[in-house]
Nucleic acid binder design. Sequence first.
DNA 1: AACGCGCCCTGTCCGC
DNA 2: TGCGGACAGGGCGCGT
Length: 275
Amino acid sequence: MPELPEVETIVRDLKRLVRGATIAEVQVVRPDLVTLDPIRFSEVLHGARIDRVERRAKNILLHLSGTGPEIEWLKVNLGMTGRLLVQGADAPEPKHLGVRFVLGDGRRLLYEDIRRFGELSLLSADAWREQEARLGLEPLSDEFTAEALLELMRRSRSPIKVWLMDQKRVVGIGNIYASEALFHARIRPTKPAHDLSAAAAARLHEGIQAVLNQAIEFRGTTLLDYRDAAGERGSFAARLCVYGREGQPCVRDGTPIRKIVQAGRSTFFCPHCQR
DNA sequence: AACGCGCCCTGTCCGC
DNA sequence: TGCGGACAGGGCGCGT
């Protein structure tokens, strides 16, 4: 579901809405969503303060104080259908509620997840450092350059579209933005990563950043389930060039968009202008 | 080591 | 209208 732009939108919302808030009470409605024993999970968070909100890859990170020395982070991965919603005390609760955080001022921070592929985990500073070390480059950071991208791609024979979705190299790109970035760069999704030229790497670098930044501007892509922290949809879906547009004319040259399956996921591209 | 596949789960849509 | 199957934004663990 949520890729970097959607997670970034939620993180920006949460910074505004819950930074500095205390957690008065926690109820775990769906125990399979939390990594700890649900009773322990609630106990640890009781009375904690959310002092920072960050994004790394597709994870939302709440930095906590008042949890004791063992636990420093609440990491939320939204999976396909996860949502983090901030609501007033008497707003109706969502149907697929997973975890309810009652805040000090009475508002609720709610984790909802229809398919329950998401996960909430409590981590020590060391445990998070270890996980974080296995994640690839942030595509909107200064370390992500066309040269770095080219160097990383040289090591893999994977089709470039599949390669882009692997969070060990570059993070945050999922099924929608992989197709979109390749369209912008005019690169065929089936091309082996190590076959891309320096010029293609430069176009892909530009395509990735342009697509992600625009999607953030439009508060993400809502196909069906995605919502921001206020429960609102993103509006980038109307700007997608290829994703979900099989058979419709390419916005550049009118050729019908094709859909193929790679590593079990749908890929969309223009067979004429993506070579 | 790198890569492909099945699977976790619920909801929706399409063809018969 | 009902029913089976395919498919949906992610990521893990398994086998080769």
